[in-house]
Simulated assay, not measured.
Amino acid sequence: MTTLFISDLHLDAERPAITELFGKFVEGEARGADALYILGDLFEAWVGDDDPSEVGAFVADRLAALDRAGTPSYFIRGNRDFLLGEAYGQRARMRILPDPAVIVLEGAPAVLMHGDTLCTDDKAYQAFRTQTRDPKWQAQFLAQPLANRIAFAKQARAASQAHQSGLKRDGLMEAITDVSQATVDATMARFGIPRLIHGHTHRPKVHDEAHGTRIVLGDWYEQGSVLRVDREGAKLSALV
């Protein structure tokens, strides 16, 4: 049996082909797997569980059917869908995990994260993250009309793109938006677990670290990046 890991799908109405690819993956390979773990940024944006988007409905229906077929799904919130709540989780029959989370994988522990907390050199993003993870901020935001929240999400996306454009212009994009090696080392040392799996950076690779192995999942902008773990080991590859 195999355990599957994906992240950074960024599903959105503007990219229907990727949503379709996700549906085929869930209805195909994911059925019969031990479990499916989604390590954040399943959606391009999430402004509350009351959002009636067709993409959200599609994903919930497919994941609920996957659970009924015997494969549970687990979710860690990302930087794009950190407001995804228990109501949607129940609708999708998807278990929401804390970030970070520790699981037992083929008899050995592994640490799962979205990965954004490892990118500590990006000071502007970390400040934004601290603000938006505050429960009071979230309560005030979710109390606003849906249209206001959607408008905020669009503004936040534009601000993020402008921030990244500035980093590219200054030649800092690769360094600032990747993980901090010191933070990776400290995180793995703190847990004392020699396997860390995360997404966020869109740089799929298996790294040999000082404290073990770090596996970075890829995004789904052009292809479906999947990590498959079974008794034979771990294999990171693309669907297409």
Rank of each mutant, 00 (worst) to 15 (best):
residue 118 L to N: 00
residue 63 L to A: 07
residue 38 I to P: 00
residue 74 Y to R: 13
residue 117 T to L: 00
residue 44 E to R: 12
residue 32 G to P: 12
residue 71 T to N: 03
residue 110 A to E: 04
residue 118 L to F: 02
residue 97 L to M: 15
residue 33 A to S: 14
residue 47 V to N: 00
residue 35 A to F: 02
residue 92 A to E: 00
residue 91 R to D: 11
residue 90 Q to T: 12
residue 41 D to H: 09
residue 75 F to T: 04
residue 59 V to C: 05
residue 78 G to P: 11
residue 107 G to A: 08
residue 82 F to K: 06
residue 100 P to T: 04
residue 51 D to G: 05
residue 84 L to N: 01
residue 85 G to R: 02
residue 40 G to L: 09
residue 104 V to Y: 04
residue 52 P to K: 01
residue 60 A to E: 10
residue 72 P to G: 05
residue 59 V to P: 02
residue 117 T to H: 00
residue 77 R to E: 01
residue 97 L to T: 08
residue 30 A to N: 05
residue 113 M to L: 15
residue 70 G to E: 06
residue 38 I to L: 04
residue 60 A to W: 07
residue 83 L to F: 05
residue 59 V to H: 07
residue 38 I to K: 00
residue 83 L to K: 02
residue 87 A to S: 13
residue 90 Q to G: 15
residue 114 H to Q: 12
residue 58 F to K: 12
residue 61 D to E: 14
residue 96 I to C: 14
residue 107 G to Y: 08
residue 76 I to T: 03
residue 119 C to A: 09
residue 79 N to G: 09
residue 58 F to H: 09
residue 74 Y to W: 15
residue 104 V to C: 14
residue 93 R to S: 13
residue 100 P to K: 06
residue 117 T to I: 02
residue 116 D to W: 01
residue 53 S to D: 15
residue 34 D to C: 13
residue 70 G to T: 14
residue 85 G to I: 06
residue 64 A to E: 06
residue 78 G to Y: 01
residue 40 G to R: 05
residue 116 D to N: 10
residue 110 A to Q: 00
residue 119 C to Q: 02
residue 87 A to T: 15
residue 30 A to Y: 00
residue 51 D to S: 07
residue 90 Q to E: 15
residue 30 A to C: 12
residue 83 L to Y: 07
residue 62 R to N: 09
residue 116 D to Q: 02
residue 109 P to R: 02
residue 58 F to I: 11
residue 98 P to F: 07
residue 76 I to V: 13
residue 89 G to D: 06
residue 111 V to R: 00
residue 77 R to Y: 05
residue 102 V to T: 13
residue 46 W to E: 10
residue 118 L to H: 00
residue 112 L to H: 03
residue 107 G to H: 11
residue 92 A to G: 06
residue 106 E to Q: 14
residue 99 D to S: 09
residue 54 E to G: 05
residue 81 D to P: 10
residue 92 A to W: 05
residue 71 T to Q: 04
residue 43 F to S: 06
residue 36 L to H: 03
residue 101 A to Q: 05
residue 112 L to R: 01
residue 40 G to F: 06
residue 77 R to D: 00
residue 50 D to C: 10
residue 74 Y to D: 13
residue 36 L to T: 03
residue 37 Y to R: 02
residue 114 H to F: 06
residue 58 F to A: 15
residue 49 D to K: 03
residue 59 V to Y: 02
residue 82 F to I: 07
residue 43 F to R: 01
residue 64 A to R: 11
residue 86 E to S: 15
residue 85 G to W: 04
residue 65 A to G: 10
residue 84 L to R: 00
residue 55 V to E: 04
residue 107 G to K: 11
residue 31 R to V: 14
residue 58 F to M: 15
residue 48 G to W: 01
residue 113 M to K: 03
residue 99 D to I: 09
residue 90 Q to K: 14
residue 31 R to P: 07
residue 34 D to V: 13
residue 79 N to R: 04
residue 33 A to D: 08
residue 95 R to E: 12
residue 35 A to K: 01
residue 34 D to K: 15
residue 97 L to V: 06
residue 53 S to Q: 06
residue 84 L to T: 04
residue 60 A to T: 09
residue 89 G to L: 07
residue 54 E to K: 12
residue 54 E to S: 08
residue 87 A to L: 14
residue 70 G to H: 11
residue 38 I to T: 01
residue 78 G to E: 11
